[in-house]
Design a protein around this nucleic acid. Sequence first.
RNA 1: GGUGGCGUGGCCGAGUGGCUCAGGCAACGGCCUGCAAAGCCGUCCACGCGGGUUCGAUUCCCGCCGCCACCUCCA
Length: 476
Amino acid sequence: MTVPPIHLYDTRRRAVVPFEPVVPGKASIYTCGPTVYGPQHLGNMRSQLLPDLLRRVLRAGGYDVTFVTNVTDVGHLVSDADEGDDKVEAAAAETGQSVEEITGHWTEQWAGDRRRLGMLEPDRVPYASKHVPEQIAMIQTLEAQGRTYVIDDGVYFDVSTYPEYADFAHLNLDDLEATGRVENVSDKRHPADFALWKLSPPDSARLQEWDSPWGRGFPGWHIECSAMATKYLGRHFDIHTGGIDHVRVHHTNEVAQSECALEQHPWVNIWMHNEFLDVGTEKMSKSKGHVLTVQTLVDEGIDPLAFRYFFLQAHYRQQQNFTIDLVRSAGTALRRIVHHAVAARDAVGGDASGADAARTEPLRAAFWEALADDLNGPRALAVVASVARDPELSDADRWSLLADFDQVLGFGLADATDPEAADDSADDPRIAGLLADRTAARADKDWAEADRIRDLLAAEGLEIVDTPDGPQARRR
RNA sequence: GGUGGCGUGGCCGAGUGGCUCAGGCAACGGCCUGCAAAGCCGUCCACGCGGGUUCGAUUCCCGCCGCCACCUCCA
């Protein structure tokens, strides 16, 4: 096995720890998925790229990986102060569409963008709205344990029944109370108490609501992840990931309710959180209006995989500066790597058996060591860059390494076409004619005419590359 | 107010108590070219400020300055 023992940073322990699977040979991962009331932006996608990278590294390391990520299509309130509208319902009211139209549309946007970024399909994508009974069952367990109380607007988890509540995120509950920044809008006993089940207002029906032992209503936001993760990954699983913003509230609450209901500690062995993308002075988030999506990149003429490369250029636990130009730079780097990879691949007909282990193995080791060390993408990419053009390597060496690395890079190198090669532009008779005219002009040393034709095509966005076999054209 | 983090060459961004101290993008020079473009080769060698520890600190400690995030729906 070329992948050394994998070490990952665990938010709970605040340390890089060895990955030790609950079940030998297997790895289970849960990631908080999208709330489908609006577009998933590039910041959201960073939170999806982390588990994609993680599962690829674990898989390369020989683990049988199960990856589950949910779709939140109900119950995510606008405010955690337990007031305000459900986000999905608010979107439905605003657009006049049905709940199904809203959630279906944005779920598809999310899934499509995942694919465009070269991510592997999840093994399971459970929907919150389809798991209400499981959520109710978990709440009932907590109720039987005496950890809940009911007030006018819902069923709440009483954090005082779980002394370890503050440990996960290293919170200071007294301080939380003292600052008064958590509004006490309801009759909650403690500001940190959170809703498990929300009761529908007596006088107004919701678009999505269910009967429950406590009355008609809908599940609180946090309980869904606990219920679905447990259902599909078991009462004790390996890794839970999400954006760093979830540490304080969402994941703290997930841990509290899960460890209590399941009587299992730890419920999850390793918690991994990606830092945010930094878009100028404000982070990118739906509520701030910076909605940059994969489609934004495509509209800019950028290959979505450039964003994948961009993601790997910074460590996931580091805030990453984001600008379109930086992604474009990443795209340039990616294009050069693909160019070399394809050249090597085609030179050996995809057969890397002629590789010289003495040359390749140190590089292979460097690549996998970087990733096994808490998914150090930048270091891995440095190896990729040198492999791509190291003149000491044969084509077989190069392809042997890059084909191997692509398990994690996900650039599709096995099927990629050379980005520097001609495209089908010259199939157009007019363009083919112009190229022929230019070749003739050059033969006559009529440089003015040759350049005129080149400028003409350039104005149409076509780039001419002169090769020993004649001119080639491609769109820029 | 509380908590966590960051400040590295034009831009991004790894990393390390000393060893030619990543990598990418850009720029510049060269090769190639009629000139270009694309590609290749090369150059560019930095660690916010002030103290301290040390034979030696960008890397450890203290202080300061600046920036960001979370604590509220947020990836």
